[in-house]
Computed example of a mutant assay.
Amino acid sequence: MKAKILILAAVVLLLASCGTKKASPATPATPTVTEAAKATELTPALAEGKNLYENSCARCHKLFEPKQFTQEEWKPILVKMQKKAKLDDSQMASISNYITSQL
């Protein structure tokens, strides 16, 4: 019975990960770099930080936009939350780098 449940869960996860992609809006004829475009262009390291932020922090409370606080305000928040979320230093560095990149 456990094997059937695990197989079913794996199939559901596979199907969910293969979901439809949202269509991106049409790009203007003259390329301009906006703040929104910069925010979406994440390096793999920043993408990992974003993923950790969204998955670790959203388990307990709503996510705050990185720009909602200054870099100085984020530091004590992240230190406090690291203990509660049981994240190691490398994971916290990744989250901190992501948040800093969005300010």
Rank of each mutant, 00 (worst) to 15 (best):
Y53F: 05
D89V: 00
A23K: 13
L15G: 08
E65P: 01
A93Y: 01
H61K: 05
A23R: 11
I5P: 04
T40P: 10
T43N: 03
S94N: 00
A39D: 08
M1V: 06
R59H: 12
K67S: 09
L8D: 07
A3M: 14
K22Q: 10
V33A: 07
K83R: 13
G19F: 02
P66I: 05
T40R: 15
A29H: 11
K80W: 07
G49N: 01
R59Q: 15
P25Y: 13
C57A: 03
E73G: 01
R59C: 11
T43A: 02
K4Q: 15
K62M: 05
N51G: 13
P76V: 00
A58H: 12
Q68W: 14
N51D: 15
T70F: 04
L78N: 00
T30K: 12
E54T: 07
K50R: 14
E35A: 09
F64H: 06
A58C: 12
G49W: 00
Y98E: 01
Y53R: 01
Q68K: 14
V11M: 08
L87D: 01
N51R: 06
Y98G: 00
T40L: 15
H61C: 07
S17H: 06
L52W: 00
T40I: 13
K21S: 13
A37V: 13
A45Y: 04
E65R: 02
V11K: 03
I77M: 03
E72G: 00
E48D: 05
E54D: 06
E48I: 02
Q102L: 00
E65S: 09
P31L: 10
A23E: 14
T20W: 10
M1Y: 10
Q91F: 03
K80F: 11
E72N: 03
A16V: 04
L15N: 09
T70S: 06
S94R: 00
E35R: 14
N55Q: 13
L78W: 01
K84L: 15
P66D: 14
E41V: 11
K83C: 10
T70Y: 03
I5K: 14
L52H: 02
A3L: 13
M92L: 07
C57Q: 01
L6D: 08
P28R: 05
V33I: 08
A37P: 02
R59S: 13
A3H: 09
A36C: 02
K2V: 09
A47N: 12
A23W: 11
T34D: 04
K67M: 07
S96Q: 13
K75C: 05
S94A: 11
T32D: 15
T32A: 15
Q68V: 11
P44Y: 05
L78K: 02
K80I: 06
G49L: 01
K50L: 09
V12I: 11
V79N: 12
A93C: 02
I5T: 12
L6S: 11
